[in-house]
Amino acid sequence: MESLLVPLLMLSLVWATSAGSFYENFDEAWGGDLAKILNNGQVLSLSLNRASGSGVKSKSQYLYGKFDIQMKLVPGNSAGTVTTFYLSSLGSTHDEIDIEFLGNLSGQPYILHTNVYTQGKGNREQQFYLWFDPTKDFHTYSILWNPLTIIFSVDGIAVRQFKNLESRGIPFPRSQAMWLFGSLWDAEDWATRGGLVKTDWSNAPFTATYRHFAAQACVRKQPSQTCSSSSWLNQDLDISGQKQIRWAQKHYMVYNYCTDTKRFPQGLPPECSFN
């Protein structure tokens, strides 16, 4: 464990807990007035029209953290749209941890799309249907990222884990601090049924709503300070969490890259033997 925590000291990180205000935690990244912070900073509204989507970027960079957000997704015919909550560094060798929601035709289920990039390499998608309508009410979506693991959760139920298997030569995102993003954008070339269903712009503007942002995280900042230890920093899945993942994969998984032999004809990625 000590070797895994070295980057915390090298990057001069400080422990921080953030909650509530989008004014305090995010800046508008693109889309101008299509990204709106409302209710004294407690609500974020992102919209998409034919001219542009919209997005926000965290004011801070993080190296490890537990990030929670409540979201209500685009209702009705949202085909071609993608609503996101994700972590990413920058550059060709960036790291990234993705939660994305792929839009649908009215009456069809949304797809929760997850991915993990390390050193610019992704192709680690797992996709799930949700067991509720994410357009009717707010639900909580979470990313736990620590030196041991990455865990994706929905309403406190773990649906996916990506373990740190560096000891077996498999890269893990632990050396690059990342920003947190939220966005709504048009991806009609792939988002719905592989791009077969296009965006119906007569339904624009499309709008998704975010609230109750919370982060327990290590924040990169100056002057030099170290990141305090906390329970989430060493958290892994317990027996209950492992059962949750098996339940989600059995009943709601749509796609798992670790079973896609057509995509990887030379052999599945090495982590598939362990995750």
Rank of each mutant, 00 (worst) to 15 (best):
S224D: 04
Y117I: 13
Q225P: 00
Q108V: 04
N104E: 00
L237C: 08
V74Y: 04
L38M: 09
F85K: 02
G241S: 09
N39Q: 15
W190R: 07
G194P: 02
F181E: 01
R263Y: 10
Q161C: 03
L233S: 02
L4C: 12
P109M: 05
M10Q: 14
Y210A: 02
V6P: 00
P269D: 00
S92T: 11
D155K: 03
A16S: 14
G182D: 01
L165R: 14
I157V: 10
S12V: 02
D236H: 09
W131Q: 12
T192Y: 01
M253G: 00
T199S: 13
W190F: 12
Y110V: 05
A19G: 07
F213K: 06
G91L: 11
W232G: 03
F264Q: 09
I170D: 03
A51N: 12
S273P: 00
Y210I: 07
L237P: 06
P223A: 10
T114F: 03
W145F: 07
A214I: 12
L13W: 05
W201K: 06
S106L: 08
I239W: 03
S240T: 12
W30A: 01
W30C: 09
K250L: 08
A19Y: 03
I170K: 14
Q222G: 11
W131I: 08
E2D: 15
R174Q: 14
C272S: 02
F101T: 12
L90M: 01
G76A: 10
W131K: 11
E28R: 05
A29S: 13
P205Y: 10
G182A: 13
T199F: 07
P7F: 04
Y255M: 08
Q126V: 09
D236L: 05
C218G: 01
K66H: 11
D200Q: 01
Y110G: 03
F206P: 04
K57R: 15
K59Q: 02
T199V: 11
K221H: 09
F152T: 05
S3Q: 11
D186W: 01
V197T: 13
G241E: 05
G182Y: 03
V43K: 10
W15S: 15
N49K: 11
Q119Y: 10
L13D: 05
L184H: 06
D98F: 02
L233F: 06
D98H: 06
G182S: 02
I245S: 12
T81R: 00
R174G: 14
M71N: 01
Q119R: 15
A217Y: 01
C258L: 12
G120M: 14
D33R: 14
S229V: 11
A35T: 08
Q249T: 15
F181S: 04
A217N: 07
S175G: 06
Q225I: 07
I157H: 10
E125T: 04
N40A: 13
E271I: 03
D186R: 08
S18M: 12
T83V: 10
D95V: 15
V116W: 07
T149N: 12
T114N: 13
W179D: 09
N39I: 00
K262Q: 06
Q61H: 01
T17V: 13
Q42L: 08
D27C: 00
A215R: 12
P7I: 11
